[in-house]
Design a binder for these strands. Structure first.
Lengths: 344, 344
DNA sequence: TTGAAAGCGGTACCAG
DNA sequence: CTGGTACCGCTTTCAA
């Protein structure tokens, strides 16, 4: 392995000079610089990241922590982060958190100085304890898809999103509108589902529609669980004419449930999702679009700014706008003549 | 920031001893060990990864290089890698390659010793040049979803997969079977699409069915491009009764094209995909299932074994079995009475 | 069993 | 403008 010393020797200079050339520092004559550059090229020399990290006290790495790569929305955000970091000199270290132990390990891991110079937390707001630790260590952190007091956050107005979806359904004439979201999860303090539900309730209230508590259900964030839940909703004596779900993934589950019961969508059931993941357009799913990729990219850019000294280290909140994307799963309600049996 | 010296001082021992405790080395009395451990806990000390990397000559990091996080199959493989690495002491450094420049940078980046101790290349077989470089540097590499002479590879039999899909269609009675795959891409030497086509052709030949060159098309690997391509196929005077695509993503595009033309699936058109990505079951897509997650996990385990000295550094090829998953998009062919016009 | 000291490969300061 | 040198924080060898 060739080191900076080899280069210095071959170029007939001191290692300090080589280092200067390497870092583009001022104060190297052109002649010398060229000589060094030739030596570097000839030897195919590449500086050791570890040595550099140790010496500079920074790792040139950014840690990205996210839950569940199974969620398209998370992946899309990560894509954005990757893109935002691409032009930079930073490597991206990826960790996923699916269990409390992992959470402990990952978040505390960030606190190791010189493991990462900064972190992007996707959908994982740090607990007060974790926040405290992060703060004392001084690693800059940007939070995506969650709000954490005192940390820059890239987020959306979930309450508004919930309103948008619900108002869309109300405008179409629905009044029996169900909400299907995530069950509270002690491990992660995901709040987006709750906020979307709050928006849903607010929209109903504003419209003077009584919210039927029986129409608000929640479960595991998966297509299967959503299908199950939706099935129960649809099998009620007085089923909803529309279902708003906290995510597109869950909306797909609802569509499955409807299909299993031979229900026409949107004729007999309207469905609104949230996120606008890639498959939503294929399915023709009406949804509340949030620019997922964008949030990741912005987070990366923001963190980079913070690392450069520009940019806020605290509390800035960037709100990304939402759009309702009407597609084929929503329409005017049409009462079902009779209860249907599931198809074959 | 507390260092090993602080710990040593507090415990009243030398730094060598602390290091031994840290690394579980032999030759530390229990009394001393406990004292040191107490000091570590009291100080909340965590060793610096950079210093450790420099000193040990290894980074405790594994580099994962993959193209396009937009492809569900790639993400699923990465999920597997993440899982396979979870219990290990290795961090995962993720890089994506979408352009030739990135490719250069990423793959050469691996050659910086002590940036990564090993690498997993997903769907990106190194060029001979790159292979040579990797080899001289000595970074252990495992290749997933590609075959590279001299490197351990986790792969599937794409030719067989192509056969399986095609034979399924032949058995149903189809003879006008189209193949829709990836256009050759100079940037990456993806071969799976070509291999699947080879299997398709072989199956046709074996069945004594003449392959119609007009029914073999290729384009960009995306739903949109596939929809476009499939549209042209379906608008021919003598359209195919079945289409086998090189991926599920492309199969979705085909389904879109069929839907746009109001074609019944599988009545008027059968569709077989490849991969069995998550959404395939929702769509009811008949497909050739490859255990994507599994390949990632196996790759991680294999690489870990290599790093431990167990495991082959060269040429082992692990072939993961495929399964045909018949769902709702394939059935017996039924000639279309007349050419249909696209529905509004 | 333990402490001291020599690196690991850079960066950056200091004197010249 | 340049060379020499003192660290950066840890691992590991060598004596004691």
């Amino acid at each position: 392995m060739t080191t900076i010393r080899d280069v210095a020797e071959r170029a007939g200079v001191g290692i300090g000079t080589v280092s200067r050339v390497l870092n583009g520092s001022q104060g190297v004559s052109n002649r010398t610089r060229e000589r060094v550059e030739r030596a570097i090229a000839a030897l195919g020399y590449r500086p050791s990241p570890a040595a550099r990290a140790l010496s500079r006290g920074r790792a040139s790495t950014i840690a990205v922590t996210a839950p569940f790569l199974t969620r398209p929305s998370v992946v899309e955000r990560i894509r954005g982060v990757v893109a935002g970091l691409d032009a930079s000199e930073y490597d991206l270290s990826l960790a996923t958190v699916e269990t409390p132990e992992q959470r402990q390990r990952r978040i505390v891991g960030l606190c190791q100085r010189d493991r990462a110079d900064g972190a992007i937390l996707i959908s994982i707001p740090p607990t007060p304890d974790e926040l405290e630790t992060l703060r004392t260590v001084g690693v800059p952190v940007v939070v995506v898809d969650a709000v954490t007091e005192g940390l820059p956050c890239i987020t959306i107005d979930n309450i508004l999103g919930g309103r948008m979806a619900t108002e869309h359904l109300l405008e179409l004439g629905h009044t029996r509108i169900a909400f299907l979201g995530d069950a509270p999860d002690a491990r992660f303090a995901f709040t987006s589902s709750d906020d979307r539900r709050a928006g849903y309730l607010a929209a109903l209230a504003d419209a003077g529609v009584d919210a039927d508590p029986d129409l608000v259900v929640s479960g595991e964030h998966s297509r299967e669980a959503a299908a199950e839940l939706a099935g129960r909703l649809l099998d009620r004596p007085a089923p909803p004419t529309a279902i708003f779900t906290a995510s597109d993934t869950q909306a797909l589950g609802v569509l499955e449930a409807a299909r299993a019961r031979d229900l026409e969508v949107p004729g007999q059931l309207s469905v609104v999702g949230f996120d606008d993941i890639e498959i939503a357009s294929f399915v023709g799913l009406t949804t509340v679009r949030q620019p997922l990729y964008e949030t990741g990219r912005r987070a990366a850019e923001l963190l980079l700014a913070v690392l450069e000294g520009t940019g806020p280290r605290t509390g800035a909140r960037i709100d990304i706008p939402l759009t309702l994307v009407p597609r084929l799963t929503t329409g005017r309600p049409r009462t079902r003549a009779t209860r249907r049996r599931p198809a074959h």
